[in-house]
Computed example of a mutant assay.
Amino acid sequence: MSNIHPTAIVEAGARIDPSVTVGPYTVIGPDVSIGAGTTVGPHCVIEGRTTIGADNRIFQFASLGAAPQDKKYAGEPTRLVIGDRNTIREFCTFNLGTTQDKGVTTIGDDNWIMAYVHIAHDCVVGNQTILANNATLAGHVQVADQAIIGGLTGIHQFVKVGAHVMAGFASHISQDVPPFMMVDGNPLAVRGLNLEGLRRRGFSAARMAGIKQMHRVLYRQGLTLESARTAIAELPLTHPEASADIALVLAFLDASTRGIAR
């Protein structure tokens, strides 16, 4: 293939679309699959049972599909799956899954992943997220669609970060963060709603009103979590335009295992 540099090593068995570009000194293992239009920069290592979709741009020195940093891992046939149109900058490290979970680390589509980001075993990253420089996801972390994780932020294992969350620079996230919230700090604090992000994504005034009321109930009225959940469940009666957003928050609260950041 003329668009694979002669110094690159592509092991027998790798499934590389003819349109893929591979830079010098990159190493691609035998169980790797890379889809159409993806470019892989120089000095990358892509190994393990790794599947990469179409039109991704992987910059130099990335390490994708290495064994998880988990002492229990014993070489089981786990996977890394990366979707389409992702930007993966320099020195990113994404690991395979483990058999203690579903056995797969998953990154969705259209994500903007900056330099030195670490995505550990069994993480699930949604679509259209931004992970800024040196953001670090421990094992089993979930980051939902259109969340933004600030640089130098660490996320504790098993934590869930909801859709449209914005986490500020150098935050320590050790509890689940419900959708739409803006958080930062160490210890972490909920500062308000990611209102500017919602406006940019075309949320109507009526939807925003329902989300604001959810925030008041959850964080400003001194209610227990159980009482707040009950009150939020009644909000579609007064904010029908935000029914889907309310359902999203209720589902997140029900799925929380580490308790929510309050």
Rank of each mutant, 00 (worst) to 15 (best):
32 V>F: 05
148 I>A: 00
129 T>I: 12
130 I>L: 14
21 T>F: 11
184 D>N: 15
203 F>R: 00
134 N>D: 08
127 N>L: 12
108 G>W: 01
115 A>K: 03
61 F>D: 09
238 T>G: 09
261 A>P: 03
105 T>R: 07
25 Y>P: 00
187 P>H: 13
78 T>I: 06
241 E>N: 05
39 T>V: 15
238 T>Q: 09
214 M>F: 06
108 G>Y: 04
57 R>T: 14
172 H>D: 13
73 Y>S: 09
199 R>I: 13
44 C>Q: 06
71 K>A: 15
73 Y>N: 02
2 S>K: 14
126 G>H: 02
116 Y>D: 09
258 R>T: 01
151 G>V: 11
91 F>E: 03
72 K>C: 06
160 K>G: 05
255 A>P: 03
7 T>C: 08
183 V>N: 00
108 G>T: 03
139 G>W: 01
8 A>M: 01
82 I>R: 02
130 I>T: 13
64 L>G: 01
174 S>Y: 07
78 T>N: 09
144 A>Y: 06
26 T>Q: 10
34 I>V: 14
201 R>L: 10
167 A>G: 09
166 M>A: 11
121 H>V: 08
252 F>I: 10
247 A>Y: 07
228 A>S: 07
113 I>C: 02
23 G>K: 05
236 P>V: 08
156 H>W: 03
115 A>N: 10
194 N>I: 00
84 D>V: 11
24 P>Y: 12
51 T>C: 08
120 A>E: 07
120 A>Q: 09
202 G>N: 07
4 I>L: 01
206 A>T: 12
15 R>E: 15
101 D>V: 02
39 T>N: 09
45 V>P: 02
227 S>F: 05
228 A>C: 12
254 D>Y: 04
201 R>D: 08
247 A>F: 04
34 I>E: 00
61 F>I: 06
40 V>M: 08
117 V>W: 01
68 P>I: 04
10 V>D: 03
139 G>Y: 00
131 L>E: 03
43 H>T: 11
162 G>V: 02
78 T>L: 05
131 L>V: 11
9 I>F: 08
69 Q>S: 06
26 T>C: 10
198 L>A: 02
52 I>E: 01
130 I>N: 07
194 N>C: 00
212 K>C: 04
227 S>C: 09
116 Y>R: 13
79 R>H: 14
198 L>M: 14
143 V>G: 01
97 G>Q: 03
42 P>T: 11
132 A>W: 02
202 G>Y: 11
232 I>M: 05
41 G>L: 01
236 P>Q: 13
216 R>E: 10
104 V>Y: 02
77 P>V: 05
24 P>H: 15
115 A>W: 10
144 A>E: 13
154 G>Y: 05
202 G>F: 11
213 Q>A: 15
254 D>M: 14
164 H>A: 03
73 Y>E: 05
230 T>A: 15
190 V>S: 01
31 D>V: 03
74 A>T: 15
206 A>L: 14
103 G>M: 00
76 E>C: 04
51 T>K: 14
46 I>T: 04
234 E>N: 11
49 R>L: 12
261 A>F: 09
234 E>L: 13
231 A>M: 11
162 G>S: 11
38 T>K: 03
13 G>L: 13
92 C>A: 03
170 A>H: 13
141 V>C: 02
195 L>F: 12
32 V>H: 00
142 Q>V: 15
129 T>A: 08
228 A>W: 04
262 R>Q: 09
139 G>H: 06
196 E>Q: 12
